[in-house]
């Protein structure tokens, strides 16, 4: 029992005493996840709405791609981005080498965005699809233009849209696999990767526990927010690591 108690006590001690390294990591996590969630929202909300409202072939395709994107293992996403961003080799660099982002915070933001985008878009699409079809049809029958239809759908699906953004954020803060690949060397980049790195370095390390506890607290906040919006009991987030 003592190992468990000691680990928790040391972790909590770091949180309470305001360990600078820990608070740096918290700031980083919020900043990185905030940026990727913002980009995923700006792209994903319109995309999800468009995919849900249309009945055409391209709409169906986008929905399929979003559904598949939900299942992409973060490590694989990380590896693909790594290959695209790798600066130099005997055969030249990847197509995105010019950005110079490999092993930088920008790479982490990019990876988290790629992972959060399909989730945000798919949840928005699900929310819009749940808007009674009769209402959309009625609006069309009354001459509403596509933009007005989209605005109506967004309004009706507002809890789902906010829930989607929260889920995107929740996913972003939990990601480790992609960051280990494209952010290699930035081991304290986020709470999740810092927890993993310090655990691996020293077992029940106080930093590992502290990072894990703060991540858990952040996650509980996001889950509580999402729950308060929830109308349907569905899995609101996908586990990502």
């Amino acid at each position: 029992m003592s190992a468990l108690v000691d680990g928790l006590r040391d972790g909590i001690h770091l949180v309470v005493t305001g360990d600078p390294q820990l608070y740096d990591t918290i700031g980083n996590t919020l900043s990185i996840a905030g940026r990727s969630t913002l980009i995923a929202t700006l792209l994903g909300v319109p995309l999800g709405c468009w995919a849900a409202l249309g009945g055409g072939r391209s709409h169906r395709w986008v929905r399929l791609v979003l559904a598949a994107g939900l299942r992409l293992p973060p490590v694989a996403v990380g590896l693909v981005l790594w290959l695209l961003m790798w600066p130099d080799s005997r055969w030249g660099g990847g197509p995105l080498a010019g950005l110079g982002w490999i092993y930088t915070t920008n790479a982490i933001v990019l990876a988290q965005t790629v992972l959060a985008l399909p989730l945000v878009a798919a949840l928005v699409a699900g929310g819009v699809e749940a808007v009674p079809g009769g209402l959309i049809q009625q609006a069309r029958a009354l001459g509403a233009r596509p933009l007005a239809i989209a605005a109506l759908a967004m309004r009706e699906a507002r809890p789902a849209v906010i829930g989607a953004i929260l889920a995107g954020f929740g996913t972003s803060i939990a990601v480790v696999g992609a960051i280990l690949v494209v952010g290699s060397g930035l081991s304290d980049a986020t709470l999740a990767t810092a927890a993993l790195a310090s655990w691996n370095a020293g077992g029940a390390d106080a930093h590992a526990v502290a990072n894990g506890l703060v991540l858990l607290a952040l996650f509980v906040l996001v889950a509580a927010g999402a729950t308060s919006l929830q109308h349907r009991r569905t899995a609101w987030t996908q586990l990502r690591s």
Binding site: A174, A192, L215, L216, F219, A226, A235, T237, L239, S241
Partner: peptide, 9 residues
């Protein structure tokens, strides 16, 4: 919801 989406780390 926490049980559903708990970060694996």
């Amino acid at each position: 919801n926490i049980g559903l989406g708990l970060p694996p780390v």
